[in-house]
Design a protein around this nucleic acid. Sequence first.
DNA 1: ACCTGGCACTCCATCGCCGTGAGTGCCAAG
DNA 2: CTTGGCACTCACGGCGATGGAGTGCCAGGT
Lengths: 377, 377
Amino acid sequence: MIPRSGRHGSGGGQGRRGPADLAGYVVSGPVVAEGVRDVLEERRLEVLRAIVEDFVIGNEPVGSKALAERHALGVSPATVRNDMAALEEDGYITQPHTSAGRIPTDKGYRLFVDRLSGVRPLSRAERRAIQNFLEGAVDLDDVVRRSVRLLAQLTRQVAVVQYPSLTTSRVRHIEVVQISPGRLLIVLITDAARVEQRVVDIAEPIDEETVAELRTVLNRALGGRRLADAAEAAAILPDEAGPGLRTQLTALATVLIETLVERQEERIALAGTANLTRSALDFSDSLRAILEALEEQVVLLKLIGWAREPGTVTVRIGRETDVDALRSTAVVATGYGRGAAALGGMGVVGPMRMDYPGTMSAVWAVANYVGELLGAD
Amino acid sequence: MIPRSGRHGSGGGQGRRGPADLAGYVVSGPVVAEGVRDVLEERRLEVLRAIVEDFVIGNEPVGSKALAERHALGVSPATVRNDMAALEEDGYITQPHTSAGRIPTDKGYRLFVDRLSGVRPLSRAERRAIQNFLEGAVDLDDVVRRSVRLLAQLTRQVAVVQYPSLTTSRVRHIEVVQISPGRLLIVLITDAARVEQRVVDIAEPIDEETVAELRTVLNRALGGRRLADAAEAAAILPDEAGPGLRTQLTALATVLIETLVERQEERIALAGTANLTRSALDFSDSLRAILEALEEQVVLLKLIGWAREPGTVTVRIGRETDVDALRSTAVVATGYGRGAAALGGMGVVGPMRMDYPGTMSAVWAVANYVGELLGAD
DNA sequence: ACCTGGCACTCCATCGCCGTGAGTGCCAAG
DNA sequence: CTTGGCACTCACGGCGATGGAGTGCCAGGT
């Protein structure tokens, strides 16, 4: 991930220091003791870390003097300046304008997240708060709504929580009800206590008995199956049924398959958009574009869909989000669910200038707890 | 609504014109022909309307000269100035600072909405667009989601749609499923094709047969009843049942009553928050406060809950919203549903500087169409 | 009794100017 | 490789002058 080779002293042009310090020479100079190189390297990373941390706190470009003072780097501002020049050369930091301090670039944040940031464990109080807040949930909907609000509150950012996906669960029960002549309501109940409903129009009214028959047939054929299998089973149902039910079953099967296959991961909860205004100045893009993007289900799915592995927190920074409107934001996401099988994803969207350690551990903790909560069913 | 008496020439202090024009005299001067007075009055209202319209379009304080030019008032800027002075005296308009144009006050908007704004009927194309967009909906959830997005798009404002309330509908069917030992999922299906689900913990696992029995009992007792009645019926159920089912029924009834009575109108959909940024400058309050308020279900209910009468569009301006964070916004809302029985409310939230005629007709049209759509079930 | 053109006045917004200070890059010495 | 010194750059904030839109008031006309 981090290009280690060819970095130290790379970048020709304005050589950094010393008259004998010709770029070409140093780049290929393997004479330098490895130890020295590493020490150098390490301090530079330390400088980068200090820059990121200070910038996250203060939201101001950070200069060499302040850095040397606030952090125990053991060197003078001048040395720090040299390191900063090197870091800038390599694209980890940049300055908004000449004679201003430095701020991290996307690449800088990336390095910080990958190698420099520790994980800040949550305090006991925080853990307890999460537990208290979530355990009052009365049903699946409530769990999701509470989680998303909790996450927004903990991180003070925009939170996104995907409803548990149906992929790995099984059909628990299918209910068929005629809600008006010629109109059936079909309710699909799954393992994960998730309920899907759809209205189906059929050619002509049917009597209560037929409805019961349909119910029986469907449950016998699909009950207990994994959803993907159930879709297949539903596809061949009409062919196997007696002629009396054929037309109705065709209509039902069509809708069921849609529900089972296509609309699996559609629903998503969002909270904390107000937090965007707090960091509005960080966004080079307009706040409007970001809000618009966040209203698109597709975009949200894209953001947290790829981070489905429970236990592993993924961070996407800037353009890594692959969403143009979010190119000045960062996304911290993870999956939740029991064991390896993910039920869904959750995460937060915020400015790149973000407290990554804190955010990451908050996301992890909430996902973990929600996973347990749903897994216990 | 408009204080007609004592206005003309009222407000002591700096008399408007003429040395003989003493305030006390004119105020009580009933000699003035009614006709003349009305003409005056009328032109003043016309001026107010012109101010509102121009300000809505241009978002700049509007001055006497521009007004006289753009609108066929038939009088000179000087006369308009006099009218403006009177309007300001009465609190309908105000100026941000001396030597700037005028902008409407809350009171001014209120008068405009009450008496000056016509209803702009939607174009045929708009009607068709609404229809096309909504008729693709596959279920209740989809209807609501589409409506709210449509409304946001049409009005270019924040849209709010309440899910159909359960109040007037009946219990269609109740489904009970054991999702894990000792845990029941209870699904309530209503007339309006709305589905509510809740998880119930019971003391100990029960077998499939008992579940079926519970289902039968519940449906026999509650099926077909109005929700309010059903709650009552559920309350006495445990007493009537045999001892075998007593404990389970008690648990189920408790949860059912909660669902039937307390959580009736909880869900609300929101869209178009991005539109807030467009008018961010209009809000004297911070955008943040508004976004925060809009994330509170309670607040949203308050906003559209009081406008439940289908066919009548209600407008709340500024402090009339009764929500402090929204004191610089306006809310246009109405109810939807078949006939007099409202299923829910919907509306939009935007800046007071809003195209009221257009917004009102859009809200009306969408509510109307959604009402038909759901009424046809 | 009302309308109108004229006039003096107010005050916001804009612009250019300049001093200040933080921060930098480079250099020569350690 | 580090450090103190030094000249340079440039955003930022305060200042005053200018322009112009808009107003209130008045005196004269219908």
